[in-house]
Design a protein around this nucleic acid. Sequence first.
DNA 1: ACTTCGGAGAGGTCCGACCACTAGAATACA
DNA 2: TGTATTCTAGTGGTCGGACCTCTCCGAAGT
Lengths: 248, 248
Amino acid sequence: MAKSDTHMTMRVVNHIRGMIETGGLQPGDRIPPEREFARKLRISRASLRTGIGYLAAMGVMDVRHGVGTFVADGPPEIGKSSLSLLGALHGFQSWQMFEARRILESELAALAAERGREHHFASLSEEVAEMYATVANPMDYLIHDIRFHRVIAQASGNPILAALMETITSALYDERRKTAERSRDLKESADLHREIYRAIRSRNAADARTVMTRHLTMAQSAQDMEATSGEPKSVARSRKTGKRADEA
Amino acid sequence: MAKSDTHMTMRVVNHIRGMIETGGLQPGDRIPPEREFARKLRISRASLRTGIGYLAAMGVMDVRHGVGTFVADGPPEIGKSSLSLLGALHGFQSWQMFEARRILESELAALAAERGREHHFASLSEEVAEMYATVANPMDYLIHDIRFHRVIAQASGNPILAALMETITSALYDERRKTAERSRDLKESADLHREIYRAIRSRNAADARTVMTRHLTMAQSAQDMEATSGEPKSVARSRKTGKRADEA
DNA sequence: ACTTCGGAGAGGTCCGACCACTAGAATACA
DNA sequence: TGTATTCTAGTGGTCGGACCTCTCCGAAGT
């Protein structure tokens, strides 16, 4: 994991990495134009672009056509776009994604109960109110649902876990974004969110974790039911060998 | 997340994605040589390469100089090399990584207790034995330590969580790979691993989770102590604004 | 002021040549 | 015969330089 010499790609990556680690490059900053930067690093523009592409794929750089290349701003993203690809490749099952989400979010809720601040609680309260107000409109409801969970992730005080959650949930939505839930379910869902909110606000970590687990378990079975009645196929496809994960 | 038309990169990515999703491309398979493939897709070799580079950065493709380009084999990797970069960029704290690891591995241990199979238990047992045998050699000990945790991840039956764990632990080792622990600590560590093993083998999920949590908490304080006595600097550097993570 | 137009500057794509690496075939040697 | 060496075809890596497209913003026109 060193190879600073060969491989132009790594040369670029390490150079920029160094600029970031020494604080010379911060989120939102712009790097020099490709032609100029390439000249400075004594490499071709093509090679420079390879390196930048690598960093952009990992969410570290943000390339904007006609504008420039910037260090990524906003919340960190860990392999956000890769999980669905990897999922198709390794045949991830839907229940595995739900399980991962359930585990992450439950702990996130517990942490939020311990470390959340007043403005987080205020946001959560507001989103819950909006959820009740939009039970008749699944599209709008979903927006507040997502925001609710996102606020909890922020309130947990752990951006790494928050990023992991973001990765999984986006892959989950990617898989089945249709799932137009019925209003009756949404009412129940809103009730659960309210319970979660109360547990967090009263700093009851154990309850927050428990209710969040219950909420996500229900959400999973709801989707499973809908999937079963529709097309009974799983995410996984037939594979050449099904035992790759068992080797050392 | 569609844009199949413009952007050559996405055209390539989506094409290969399609080949994977329809099962026409499986792990280990080789894609055509760049020149030929580019001609087939009616795009330049350069554009094809940017697309492949994107997929390679996400761990979906494996490009081997002088040999060919293959669909990634082996266990899935989610942003494995990106976390340390992202960490430097967003100022992830060491304790946050430890916390994420603790949460993931604790649940992984619990799941392993529920779903582990005989051959997993056998592997765990063997690694524990090796750990006791190498308490005097931190270098060798570490190998078995890592393998022990990896077997648990496999035994959990959830490759997604396993991949996330892999991502975090590798970033953790990346940060401080020196930490030559003392033999006395290793003996205690081995004892804890043995306890974890026993809990898992006896299918006691609660105990497995508890002991794993204890183990990782101890490991963290051990490293913290060592770090404090040495250089009292944190992973984070000074930032322009410290409130980026709080916006909607 | 407001709108429109155009140009500067940035990234995106392409071409075609050449370099570097790998694996296996062909060859030389013991 | 068996083994070591060399050669070579095939494949990814790098290069430079031409040209296209997109954004932004200021100048000109209304």
